[in-house]
Amino acid sequence: MSDSMVPRKPPSKGFAKKKKNIILLSMLAPGAIWLILLRYLPMFGIVIAFQKFTIYTKNPTLLNNIIHSDWVGFKNFGFLFTTSDSWKMIRNTVGYNALWIVLGTVIAVSFAIMLSLLTKKFVAKAYQTLMFFPYFLSWVVASYFLMAFLDPTYGLINHLQKQWGIEATQWYFVSKPWPILLTVAYLWKNIGYSTVLYLAAITGIDTSQYEAASIDGANKKQQIRYITIPHLKTMIIILFIMSVGRIVNSDFGLFYQVPQNNGPLFPATQVLDTYVYRAFMATNNPGMSTAASLLQNVVGFFCVITANSIVRRIDEESSLF
């Protein structure tokens, strides 16, 4: 009997399973390598937060600089709380983030529901594109958009104020209106991204539920209340928990570029990130900035754990982990 006529054994299930795992792991490899190289290896630099970082002149590599720097313990953490503006920048950081978490969630969910109710697909796609477009703009570009309205000489609002006989407002020298301006700028740029996430969740809801509710006599408001919002609850909670983890972090570009780094606006625009940057530029001490970043991440981590624990006690299925 020839070799070609000998029946071949089918591959074992174990081999097929291993082959499938190898394929899946190869697909995972690029992301895992990126995570290790750019997220985990740089964590070695955390030690700078506990050192008085100096440049080692003989062989100035990062490793030699860290080895030959003196240890100062928790001294670098103190500069965040010794300044007279500590309360203001902490209040601004937490206050803005708390306000934006609430407003961002309410507005994004509302917009997503309204877009889902549009019957003409072309109109819905056009609105989605227009809302999502600002998310791709840098804060440098957005700051010039805002300046076109607020510039004391050529700004549109000041021009209208002069025409109406009203004294022109020096927007970049008065801090009082800037909490509102920063809130509007943040929502304008980021609300489209959140809206698309919620809209994707709404499109995944089984349409038969709406049809059954309509047959039972439920109107649109009742369908939104008893079908749409309950299905969005899990996503809202997960995004809320993730947002709470960044409550002591701030968007540096928003608070630095949009107010044009003007000193008179610091009472309303000074946050932890901008303060650390300005302190680093003045002192050239990487240890202080590293300590501030480490503290922010540690606080954010505990905020996520706390928020998730509270959610898990109320509704275990909606918790993040």
Rank of each mutant, 00 (worst) to 15 (best):
64 N>L: 07
105 T>P: 01
230 P>Q: 10
317 E>H: 15
18 K>V: 01
197 L>R: 13
55 I>G: 05
127 Y>C: 09
140 V>H: 06
321 F>I: 09
106 V>D: 06
36 I>C: 10
32 A>E: 07
172 Y>A: 02
318 S>L: 14
110 S>Q: 06
260 Q>E: 14
201 A>T: 03
117 L>C: 11
77 F>N: 03
227 I>T: 05
271 V>G: 01
321 F>R: 06
280 F>H: 12
187 L>D: 08
171 W>P: 02
87 W>R: 08
23 I>K: 15
40 Y>H: 08
294 L>D: 07
30 P>D: 10
63 L>A: 13
120 K>T: 05
124 A>R: 15
56 Y>V: 03
30 P>T: 10
157 I>L: 15
163 Q>A: 12
314 I>H: 14
7 P>T: 14
133 F>C: 04
231 H>F: 06
276 V>W: 00
110 S>R: 03
230 P>G: 11
203 T>H: 14
127 Y>E: 05
211 E>T: 08
168 A>C: 06
189 K>Q: 10
66 I>P: 09
230 P>N: 11
104 G>L: 00
131 M>D: 01
281 M>V: 09
7 P>W: 15
296 Q>F: 05
125 K>S: 12
167 E>S: 10
67 I>V: 13
136 F>Y: 14
259 P>C: 01
240 F>N: 01
285 N>V: 04
56 Y>Q: 07
109 V>F: 12
9 K>M: 09
97 N>Y: 08
253 G>Q: 06
273 D>R: 00
232 L>S: 00
264 P>H: 02
211 E>A: 08
92 N>M: 04
222 Q>Y: 12
259 P>W: 01
30 P>G: 12
109 V>H: 11
131 M>F: 15
27 M>Q: 11
287 G>T: 05
235 M>P: 12
182 L>H: 02
104 G>P: 06
72 V>A: 07
49 A>G: 11
13 K>S: 10
154 Y>Q: 09
249 N>H: 11
267 P>C: 09
113 I>H: 07
287 G>M: 02
177 P>K: 03
20 K>A: 03
250 S>H: 04
115 L>G: 00
12 S>W: 09
288 M>Y: 15
